[in-house]
Amino acid sequence: MGRLSRSHLPQVLWGHGQTMHCKKRQDKFKTELSIFYAWCESTNTLPQSKLGRAIAYALSQREVMENVSLDGLLEISNNCVK
């Protein structure tokens, strides 16, 4: 296998691999996310209970979580940062 120059790296790293990763994420993650949010919306809890506050927080972060599925490069976990 030949050596890759720096000019080829963006194409290799962000080209087809990103598209496939994004497609897989959209297929699986969006499905799981919609199931989770449907559960959150159908669950009746006291608003000030721990579960009620957790559900309210999750619902307030819905748009942010949906954006994760749009970009195949975004990591769902922040373990790399820690």
Rank of each mutant, 00 (worst) to 15 (best):
77 S>A: 05
82 K>L: 05
58 A>V: 01
21 H>V: 12
82 K>Q: 09
37 Y>P: 09
11 Q>S: 02
64 V>K: 08
78 N>P: 00
52 G>H: 10
73 L>H: 10
23 K>E: 08
3 R>S: 15
76 I>Q: 11
12 V>Q: 09
66 E>C: 09
27 D>T: 10
58 A>K: 01
30 K>Y: 02
2 G>T: 11
69 S>N: 02
63 E>F: 09
25 R>W: 00
76 I>S: 13
12 V>R: 12
69 S>M: 09
79 N>D: 07
34 S>R: 06
56 A>F: 05
20 M>N: 14
23 K>Y: 07
69 S>R: 01
15 G>D: 08
68 V>F: 06
60 S>K: 15
58 A>P: 02
27 D>Q: 12
70 L>H: 02
70 L>M: 04
10 P>A: 04
39 W>N: 15
31 T>D: 14
76 I>H: 10
1 M>E: 08
12 V>L: 15
46 L>T: 11
48 Q>K: 11
75 E>H: 10
60 S>V: 10
75 E>V: 04
15 G>P: 03
70 L>C: 07
75 E>M: 09
3 R>E: 15
37 Y>L: 15
57 Y>A: 11
55 I>L: 08
61 Q>F: 02
16 H>T: 14
55 I>M: 01
44 N>T: 13
6 R>Y: 13
55 I>V: 05
14 W>Y: 08
53 R>D: 00
2 G>M: 08
78 N>D: 13
12 V>C: 11
51 L>F: 06
36 F>Y: 14
40 C>K: 01
33 L>G: 11
77 S>C: 04
